[in-house]
């Protein structure tokens, strides 16, 4: 059945221009290079392959983060979410983490989810930092609203960034406590939390751009919930 484009036009969320996030490369603890780059709508089906295995992993709240991220990415792919963006981390082309967010309006950014597929390398910390960098430095927003669905998230974002608790607003992800990252807080934390080199050397960027390689379900499950790993 073909799309009724007239009705579709009514349903689609309007998009306004968003500045792009310039790719960067980060050297990880094991010496490997992680390319951090923004992906486009067309990449979503591949990303969903990487998120799907997490739906069944209850360790560290991966299932709830995975399920919501899955829905958000699908919503973006089908034009049901306004002004969403997605940044990924790749090592040798392999997808190791995904973060997403959106602009609620020109001034306020919404941090949605952070999913680390490779663990023990601070992939989540690097990607969350990239997300904050995007909102403040490239989208030029005044503040970002953040909430946490897992203790790891709480510790990382609220405590490491020293975020301000907001009692007067609700975060889009539900009624859980919302925290605020202001430009001031961001720039104060930047030297110890936001790193990366630009431009990305061609050798790394080419590999990353060529294909988003998603590990198989067993590998992803093992990486996230295997016996080993911190």
């Amino acid at each position: 059945m073909g799309l009724d484009m007239e009705l579709e036009a009514v349903l689609r969320a309007p998009e306004v221009y968003q500045a792009p996030y310039p790719s960067k490369v980060i050297t990880l603890a094991n010496g490997k290079k992680m390319v951090v780059r923004e992906v486009s709508r067309e990449d979503v089906p591949m990303l969903l392959e990487g998120v799907r295995p997490t739906l069944m992993i209850d360790r560290d709240y991966y299932d709830i983060v995975g399920a919501r991220l899955y829905a958000e990415l699908l919503g973006w792919y089908r034009y049901r979410v306004r002004n969403e963006y997605c940044i990924i981390g790749q090592i040798d082309g392999i997808l190791v983490g995904i973060v997403n967010g959106r602009m609620m309006n020109a001034d306020i950014g919404i941090s949605l989810h952070t999913l680390a597929i490779d663990r023990g390398l601070r992939v989540g910390a690097h990607l969350f930092a990239a997300k904050m960098e995007h909102h403040i430095e490239y989208l030029g927003q005044k503040e970002v609203w953040i909430t946490a669905e897992s203790p790891i998230g709480f510790r990382r974002w609220m405590i490491e960034y020293g975020l301000e608790k907001q009692t007067d607003v609700q975060h889009e992800l539900g009624g859980a406590t919302s925290y605020r990252l202001s430009r001031e807080l961001y720039f104060a934390s930047k030297p110890r939390l936001v790193v990366g080199d630009r431009p990305v050397p061609k050798e790394y960027l080419d590999v990353a751009m060529q294909e988003i390689i998603v590990a198989d379900e067993e590998t992803i499950t093992e990486k996230i919930s295997g016996v080993t790993g911190r």
Binding site: T27, L28, G31, H126, A129, V195
Partner: peptide
Amino acid sequence: EGIMDSPHSVVNN
């Protein structure tokens, strides 16, 4: 390199 020499080690380590 990853835990000491690289400037990125401030986040890694």
